[in-house]
C-alpha cells in the first residue's frame, strides 16, 4: 500500500508538470488581450507600455519558467512566512493578476470561503439526500418509489442548472422577494439575524446544486446496491436466516458503499473549483466566478494558476479515491 502510494505520488509529479505546461500553452495561445477592457480613449502607445509593464510581451517560455518558479518556490515561501512570521521570501515577485495587480493567491484566499460554503454545503446535502434514495430504490427495484426516485435523479441531471436557477430567481427572489438576488460576501455569521440572512442567500444556489449532486450520486448508489443484492453472499446470509434489516444495512450496504465513496471523493475537486455556472447565475463571487472573469479579460496569471490548482486537486483526489478503494475493499491489492 505504502509503496503504491509513493509510486503514484512520484508519477504524479511529471504528469502535473506536463499538465502545467499544456495549460500554460493553451491559455497563452487563446485569443484576446488583457487590455480589451481598457477604454478606447487610451491611445496605442500607452497600451503598449501597459503591456510591457505586465510582462505580457516576454516570450512564452520565459514566462512559463518564471511562473513555475513563482508557483513552486516563491509562493510557498510566502505561505511559510505568513504562517510562521518569518521572512524567507524577502519581497520576491509573486504571481500577480494582470487585471487587478493583486497576488493571485490573495484572490483565491478571498474567494475560497464562499465557494466552500455554498458548493460544499450543496455537496454535503446532495450526498445525504442521495444515499437513502439510492439504497431504498435499489432494494425496492421497479416499485413506485424506485420509479419516482429514478425520475427525480434523471430530471436532476438533465435539466440544466442555468434554466432552473434563473426560473427560481425570477419566482422566489424577484416576484416573491423571499431571497436576495445578490450574494453578500461580506456577511459574517455572528448572531441569529445574520445566520438567517446567510441561510436566505444560500438557499437558492444550494437547492439547485444539491439537486444536481444528489441526482448523480443516487444513481451510483442504486446501481451499486443492486449489484450487491444479486450476489451469492446475500443469498447465503438470507438462507441462514439472518434478519432482512441486518442483511441490507450491515452486509449489502457496507459492500455497496465502497464504489460510492470513491465517486464522492472524485467529485470533491469540483467543490473547490466552484460551480462556474451556478456562481454566475446567483452572483456568488467565488472561485468559479473568478476563473470566468479572468478568462473574459485574458488575465493569464490568474487563469493559469486557478486551472492548475484545479488540475492538482483532480490528480490528488484520484489518488485518494484509489487509496480509499484499497483500504475499504480488501480484495483489491495494489502490488
Amino acid at each position: 500500500m505504502l509503496t503504491f502510494t509513493l509510486r503514484r505520488l512520484l508519477t504524479a509529479i511529471p504528469t502535473l508538470l506536463l499538465i502545467s505546461l499544456v495549460i500554460f500553452l493553451l491559455v497563452d495561445l487563446a485569443p484576446g488581450s488583457p487590455l480589451s477592457d481598457v477604454p478606447l480613449t487610451v491611445p496605442p502607445d500607452v497600451r503598449q507600455k501597459m503591456l510591457e509593464a505586465m510582462g505580457a510581451d516576454q516570450p512564452v517560455m520565459v514566462r512559463y519558467f518564471l511562473w513555475l518558479k513563482q508557483f513552486f518556490w516563491i509562493e510557498p515561501l510566502y505561505g511559510i512566512d505568513a504562517l510562521l512570521g518569518t521572512d524567507f521570501a524577502q519581497g520576491a515577485q509573486r504571481i500577480i493578476s494582470w487585471q487587478s495587480k493583486v497576488p493571485v493567491f490573495q484572490i483565491i484566499g478571498e474567494r475560497l470561503p464562499q465557494t466552500l460554503t455554498v458548493v460544499g454545503t450543496a455537496y454535503l446535502i446532495g450526498v445525504l439526500i442521495a444515499l437513502p434514495i439510492g439504497i431504498y430504490s435499489a432494494y425496492r427495484q421497479y416499485s413506485w418509489f424506485d420509479q419516482a426516485g429514478t425520475f427525480f435523479a434523471m430530471a436532476g441531471f438533465s435539466v440544466p442548472t442555468f434554466f432552473t436557477g434563473n426560473l427560481l430567481i425570477l419566482i422566489f427572489a424577484v416576484n416573491l422577494g423571499w431571497f436576495p438576488t445578490i450574494y453578500d460576501t461580506n456577511l459574517e455569521v455572528v448572531d441569529w439575524a445574520s445566520f438567517t440572512k446567510m441561510l436566505a442567500q444560500m438557499a437558492l444556489p444550494v437547492t439547485v446544486l444539491a439537486l444536481f449532486n444528489a441526482a448523480e450520486i443516487s444513481r451510483y448508489t442504486r446501481s451499486s446496491v443492486l449489484e450487491n443484492l444479486g450476489q451469492d453472499y446475500v443469498r447465503t446470509a438470507r438462507a441462514k436466516g439472518m434478519g432482512e434489516q441486518k442483511v441490507v444495512l450491515k452486509h449489502v450496504l457496507r459492500n455497496s458503499l465502497i464504489p460510492v465513496v470513491t465517486v464522492v471523493a472524485l467529485g470533491l475537486p469540483t467543490v473547490f473549483g466552484g460551480a462556474i455556472v451556478t456562481e454566475q447565475i446567483f452572483k456568488i463571487n467565488g472561485i468559479g466566478a473568478a476563473l470566468i472573469g479572468a478568462i473574459n479579460v485574458s488575465d493569464l496569471p490568474t487563469v493559469q494558476t486557478v486551472t492548475f490548482i484545479f488540475a492538482v486537486l483532480i490528480v490528488m483526489f484520484n489518488l485518494i479515491a484509489d487509496i480509499l478503494y484499497g483500504i475499504l475493499d480488501p480484495r483489491i491489492r495494489y502490488d
Binding site: M54, Q93, I96, S100, K101, V102, N285
Partner: peptide
C-alpha cells in the same frame, strides 16, 4: 504593479477611505 497595499487602499483627500477591499 506589485504595490498591492497602496493600490487597493490608497490614501486620498476624498470623502471616504477604504476599510476593506476584496478584489473583483
Amino acid at each position: 504593479q506589485s504595490c498591492v497595499e497602496q493600490n487597493s487602499k490608497p490614501i486620498g483627500t476624498g470623502p471616504f477611505i477604504v476599510t476593506d477591499f476584496k478584489v473583483n
